[in-house]
Amino acid sequence: MADYTIDETVDITDVVCPVTFVKAKVALEELEDGQVLSIRLNDGEPVQNVPRSIKEEGHQILKLIDNGDGTYNLVVKRITLEDQT
């Protein structure tokens, strides 16, 4: 049972590193503080690196869902850092 509501979704399976993270970051930038984004990403390098980079930006990872088709959905809550505008 989900204890969150997804406000926005973004698909980053159509791009490769480093644009994967950039595209996710831009989608997060456009949310309000506390809103939730679901990011569809590929297995392998994206699923290894993108969650870590997003965490380093200070956002909160809520869940990683395996879609069973070589893709994942990463559910992230936007946290505004002080130095972000």
């Binding site: 791009v15 970051k25 930006e57 505008t85």
Partner: peptide
């Protein structure tokens, strides 16, 4: 919204917290 091509071309800018997509 920025296109995928723009996200890639300007990725080194966008990744900076002082710039981002807004900048």
């Amino acid at each position: 919204a920025l296109s995928n091509e723009q996200l890639e071309r300007y990725s080194r800018h966008i990744i900076l917290s002082e710039v981002g997509a807004k900048g």
